[in-house]
Deep mutational scan, measured.
Amino acid sequence: NQASVVANQLIPINTALTLVMMRSEVVTPVGIPAEDIPRLVSMQVSRAVPLGTTLMPDMVKGYA
């Protein structure tokens, strides 16, 4: 089972991601792979992401 990136806190719209905002977790459906966490740092979210939400490619500007 592949771990995905999950929000560790509420991430407001247009916030630049930092390591403390993200954790890896095995979830369904699968989201952005956990190994991409270093690449996500400083990228902005395109919408508010609630705590515990799996990050999907369309939620991060410039990821897809």
Rank of each mutant, 00 (worst) to 15 (best):
P50K: 10
A34C: 09
G62D: 11
M22F: 07
A64K: 15
E35S: 12
S24L: 07
V30T: 10
L17W: 02
Y63R: 03
S4A: 03
T54N: 02
V27L: 06
P38D: 07
M22A: 01
R47L: 08
T53Q: 14
L51R: 11
A3R: 06
Q2V: 10
V27R: 08
N14S: 13
P12W: 04
A3W: 08
L10K: 08
R23K: 10
R47W: 07
I32L: 06
T54G: 03
G62F: 09
V41K: 05
P29A: 05
T28N: 11
N14W: 10
Q2L: 15
Q9R: 09
S42M: 09
S24W: 08
N14K: 06
Q44D: 04
A48K: 08
M43W: 12
V30I: 14
V45L: 13
Q9M: 14
D36M: 14
Q44Y: 14
S24D: 13
D36P: 00
A16L: 12
K61W: 07
L19E: 04
E25D: 13
V45W: 00
V41R: 06
L55H: 00
I37S: 04
A34L: 04
I37V: 08
V6A: 03
Q9W: 11
V26T: 11
T28V: 10
P12Q: 11
P29K: 05
D58V: 10
I13N: 13
V26Q: 14
D58A: 10
V60R: 01
V45D: 01
V49W: 02
V5N: 01
V45F: 00
L55I: 15
A3I: 09
I11C: 03
S46H: 14
A16Y: 08
L51Q: 10
P38G: 11
P50Y: 13
L10E: 13
D58I: 11
A7Q: 01
G31Q: 02
S42T: 11
G31V: 02
P50E: 10
N14R: 06
V20P: 06
A16I: 06
N14P: 01
D36I: 08
V60E: 01
N8T: 15
I13V: 10
S42P: 02
L51T: 13
T28G: 06
